[in-house]
Amino acid sequence: MLDNSVILETKEITMRFGGLVAVDNFCIQLKKTDLIGIIGPNGAGKTTIFNMITGIYTPSAGDIILDQKSIKNRRPAVITQLGIARTFQNIRLFKDLTVFDNIRIAGHFRMNYGLLSSVFRNKKFHSEEKRLENETLELLEIFDLSDKKNYLAKNLPYGMQRRLEIARALATRPKVLLLDEPAAGMNPKETKELTDLIRWLRDKFQIAILLIEHDMKLVMEVCEKIHVVDYGMQIAHGLPKDIQGNPKVIEAYLGTQ
């Protein structure tokens, strides 16, 4: 049975920074396996939307609902534990740690032993560490990073760092994955691979994905629905083909003559 109830909803969220309204009454609804894109010119407020959903900023107004519960005043760590994971526009890996540790850290909150077990290295410690190790290796395999597991994250090529960041987000076992410009800085070949990866992730893990992207080809190809923001306002939303021809969108991108 296909379960397509709403998993994440933002209700007229607004973010003000002093006098600047970075995001104005933004509304979006994600169903359980939706793949939705957010596009808009630079400074439109896209990343700010992600920062509100993940609790890095608390919205000045409005509400955010995950699984029928408000997560508006929760701290980022709790929101991640409740099922929203993200990547960052300017990659935020643990640069000086290995690929393996980057992923392991994302499994931390699901670990089930206390500080005393760490000190005394009891059975629970070993079994939990073993479980985490296996899960980590499995994920590295899926993302084709197994042979790089002992590399420091900073030593990976750029495209691979992006991939690792997505893998790390998935290691938190999210219900909703937020990707902030995952194709930025990638070459056409890497972008093509990413396009396939994103689709495949949604199908394999059965998660909702919200994608910010400047690469129109990728967005149009992969997203089922698109929201367009400009100066913090949502100026259009709908199917990719409708967005492409929308005069307001064209104006936002090209400016008025």
Partner: peptide, 24 residues
């Protein structure tokens, strides 16, 4: 050298990323 230690190390590496990985 345990999950708690890795959580502590992740804060040194990048506090925002650590928090975003579900680490309090």
């Amino acid at each position: 050298n345990s999950t708690h230690g890795r959580a502590i190390i992740s804060i040194r590496e990048d506090e925002i990323a650590a928090e975003s990985m579900g680490i309090h």
